[in-house]
């Protein structure tokens, strides 16, 4: 008990002695953690969004009607395309859906009734909707179908080329962000290490005396370990507070009301906060541990 008290008193003494460097280290941790928080939010949002978009990525085959080609497509021609699709390994198992012209009209009627209500006949073609195994394959599947020039096929289409480009840009951004964050984390770990080193230097007399009178290793190291942990934790805590403020105040002001129940969601804030605080502690422990191993051999 008395040792614990002494340990805490020693840590406080040590913190006060090296206030300016502790402050600098805390600020670096703060910046690194803040950016990490932003990139976690952004990164998880991009992943969630791209997953959502990927679901929509599909190839569509439109068949001839009397109006687009000369003749309406035959059942045999449709069957030929279907056989080809079902033997293509890039196409998802059971991912080929036939949408007849009647069904297409029905879907359209639901979506935009006023467009459909004056129609005297059904101008829509039969179609296949094809789900690929991987979103990246749509282009290849479409090219394959076009290359075979099936009779009765009017058009092969695949959607969302721009969407995919956006996904790629998002991925690049999050990789860059991640790199910056790793650098910043390394920098703040080293700064913590340096802070601890300075406070070891400032307290070398105490350390010498402690060793002399037979203080146990953990007792000598404890205050410095605590100091490092405190620095890491304080930085992370401040970053969490800043992120919370940003989320609650800045974000709505910029984006307007954020749609809460959309499918696309960033990682829950509580998780982000936990990750940051845990990482802060880890960083503090790593930073001080590094220095203690090198400069405080008992």
């Amino acid at each position: 008990m008395i040792q614990l008290q002494l340990l805490l008193a020693e840590s406080l003494r040590s913190l006060r002695a090296s206030l300016s460097t502790t402050f600098a280290a805390t600020m670096t941790v703060l910046i690194a953690m803040f950016l990490l928080g932003v990139s976690i939010a952004l990164g998880s949002w991009v992943v969630s969004w791209s997953n959502n978009v990927k679901k929509d990525v599909q190839v569509k085959v439109f068949f001839c009607t009397e109006h687009t080609c000369e003749r309406e497509v035959t059942e045999a021609q449709i069957g030929g395309v279907q056989r080809r699709l079902e033997s293509d390994p890039r196409v998802k198992e059971g991912g080929v859906t036939f949408v007849s012209k009647e069904e297409a009209l029905e879907i359209m009627r639901e979506r935009s009734p006023e467009l459909v209500k004056d129609l005297t006949y059904n101008p829509l073609p039969h179609a296949f909707e094809i789900q690929p195994n991987r979103a990246e394959d749509v282009e290849a599947i479409a090219a394959d179908l076009r290359g075979r020039q099936f009779a009765g096929v009017e058009k092969v289409d695949y959607g969302r080329a721009t969407a995919r480009r956006i996904i790629r840009v998002g991925q690049v951004i999050s990789i860059i962000f991640f790199g910056v964050v790793v650098l910043l984390l390394a920098a703040s770990g080293l700064l913590i290490a340096n802070t601890i080193r300075l406070s070891i230097y400032a307290r070398r007399r105490e350390i010498e005396v402690m060793k002399l009178v037979g203080a146990s290793n953990w007792f000598v190291r404890g205050p410095f370990m605590l100091e490092g942990l405190f620095t890491g934790f304080a930085g992370a805590l401040l970053a969490v507070i800043l992120l919370l403020l940003g989320k609650e105040i800045a974000l709505p002001a910029i984006l307007g009301r954020v749609d809460a129940d959309s499918d696309v969601q960033a990682l829950a804030f509580a998780w982000t906060a936990l990750i940051l605080l845990g990482l802060g502690l880890l960083l503090g422990a790593a930073g001080s541990g590094l220095t203690l191993r090198r400069f405080l051999r008992v």
């Binding site: 008395i2 040792q3 002494l6 007399r205 005396v209 402690m210 009178v213 007792f219």
Partner: peptide, 28 residues
């Protein structure tokens, strides 16, 4: 251990310097 340069902690009194050794060793 006793040294030529005493190795006392300058910001603690004589009694505190002695007590410090005991505290560090976990005395009550």
């Amino acid at each position: 251990c006793v040294f030529q340069d005493f190795k006392l902690l300058p910001n603690r009194t004589a009694a505190e310097n002695v007590a410090y050794a005991l505290k560090v060793q976990g005395e009550n």
